[in-house]
Write a protein that binds this DNA or RNA. Structure first.
Lengths: 332, 332
DNA sequence: TTGTATGCGTTATCAA
DNA sequence: TTGATAACGCATACAA
């Protein structure tokens, strides 16, 4: 059972008042060096840890950050969420926060969850994933002046709130350039149906890079729901192409499986560098998830240390766009 | 910003004392029906939510459960942890708990983390994964009378503490029986090097089922580190076999890729039903992770409501072994 | 620079 | 069955 050491205990041990100990913790500059040293020593010695509940009573802060864990829709992306969550947990600890999980069936029910998390647990801030056009969750949080940031930009209005995202277009562009440099001229793209913000972005990177290289894109783009079989089907329909950039690893894997050998061989580059890609030697575009996570925590810290959000003024904002990395393997 | 409704507010609104409101919440039987109804109405109306920090000050309970999120070692298993985490989050909420994440590089540093989580956040209990022989973490928790349970049995001494696990041997046995029923006689096994508790268990299921069916296992078992290529290599070495049960999906996938067509075709069954298996139509053994998660929460609740662990007496224990499910697809 | 007093929202104890 | 009071550990305003 962990120690029952309170500020009082430390104070007595160091021969000072409770208040002095509190000052050492919260306003070290105010305390004389010698005194502070003594207090710090006592804290060490007794293994004192500040009691969050008590602190929370006074400050209203819990040091808890709410993070949504989605039901795995497209299972193959589990590894992405997983790396992200791990990154968050790792970055949160040194910043003095802990990650609390929550889940919700849909955006609306998520709002009820906020209520519980906010009122009962006093969660300090939220980190959301899977943002989309017209996200009702972000509006709610903004209205209620709750600090939050998202992994995924605010597609409706770029500057609407703080977000961290990975430049998908830059990733597919890099992949395309890589293929061009390797001598490919007819490079296809297999992505998701138009209207998905993330998918549209990835397609744009490919098409811009193609045009920039003086290559046409006519008849080289395919749109389909995600999936291995879909990737295979579309790859076969791209008979003229010698290479293809895909919006996901499942699509890439399907394409690769359909045309991985013989005269018909297709160079393939996927997205997200999932374990499947790693296992199969599939080239892929890897998102720097640990960095994304660290930036999320950093942003949230900033938001929490910014006094503006207390009032009615607009909170500080911060947008971070990180570069993905092209991992080249056998497939392209 | 969520309501600032306290017990006091509710009390005034319902014309009772604070204590009565508290009683309605924590000991409803003690309160007269009519009074209770009035208080409940007031709670509804005002949208009162109990403040966890304040409650924690009195009770020492935080309603927080610590769950470790591992750095993804074998990436392909991310989906397993992911489903598990999601299941925990989902089961915890109705039980009145929230999941707090933590991470640690190794078992020893994990113990330091306990300290923080326990002293500062007053985490009520822990749920561990990836247990192994001689787990220093479980000993520490036991010594310190901290309620916990594990996903993965206590291999050193089965009854040492509460755990929830999936019967891996039953899974591989079912897979083996399925292959036997399909007419196979020479059924191989590809698993991990001996000494890994989980791996040994899965091999046992296969070998027992084989013997039970009157079939021999000589020369039919292979042991290798996990991986797609390893699976392929071992599958090729099993020339006599017409089918193989694997300890993991990567192994199964490798085996399947190496011998999926022609006269040499091998029926293959993997383990964990990862997205890869689902995408490829690979048969696999699926762990009921949502149920495991629910059982973990249930166990932890039991532990927390059991007074015994307060004293020096042994805490209550509970072991749950769940059956995995064989998912039959094209590969076997 | 250090010490004293007060209150945050809840529950436990005890008296009515 | 209900109500008054104290206490949990901390941080803040204020006094010394």
């Amino acid at each position: 059972m962990p120690s029952k050491v309170t500020i009082e205990t430390v104070a007595r041990h160091a021969n000072v008042s409770r208040q002095t100990v509190s000052n050492v913790l919260n306003a070290p500059d105010m305390v004389r060096d010698e005194t502070r040293a003594r207090v710090v020593a006592a804290i060490e010695e007794l293994g004192y840890r500040t009691n969050n509940a008590a602190r929370q009573m006074r400050t209203g802060r819990s040091n808890l950050i709410g993070v949504r864990i989605d039901p795995v829709r497209n299972g193959i992306e589990a590894s992405v969420l997983d790396r992200f969550l791990h990154g968050l947990t790792e970055a949160a600890t040194p910043a003095g926060y802990r990650v609390v999980l929550y889940t919700a069936a849909d955006d609306d029910s998520e709002v009820n969850t906020y209520d519980d998390l906010l009122a009962a647990y006093a969660v300090d801030a939220f980190i959301l994933t899977h943002t989309h056009y017209d996200d009702s969750r972000t509006s709610w949080l903004r209205e209620h002046h709750v600090p939050f940031t998202t992994f995924g930009r605010s597609w409706s209005a770029p500057e609407e709130h703080s977000w961290i995202d990975v430049d998908g277009a830059a990733g597919t562009a890099a992949a395309t350039r890589h293929l061009v440099a390797a001598g490919h001229r007819r490079i296809g793209f297999i992505g998701w149906p138009e209207g998905s913000a993330v998918g549209d972005d990835r397609r744009r990177g490919w098409s811009e890079a193609m045009h920039h290289a003086g290559l046409g894109t006519d008849g080289l783009a395919r749109f389909t729901p995600d999936g291995v079989d879909q990737g295979a089907t579309e790859a076969r329909s791209l008979n003229g192409a010698t290479a293809v950039v895909c919006a996901s690893d499942p699509l890439a894997f399907g394409a690769w499986r359909a045309r991985s050998s013989g005269a018909d061989r297709l160079a393939v580059i996927g997205f997200d560098d999932t374990p499947v890609a790693q296992a199969l030697g599939l080239s892929s575009i890897r998102q720097p998830l640990a960095q994304v996570a660290a930036a999320c925590i950093e942003t949230v810290s900033m938001l929490l240390n910014d006094t503006r959000h207390d009032g009615d003024g607009e909170p500080a904002r911060r947008q971070v766009l990180l570069e993905p990395e092209l991992i080249v393997r056998d497939s392209g």
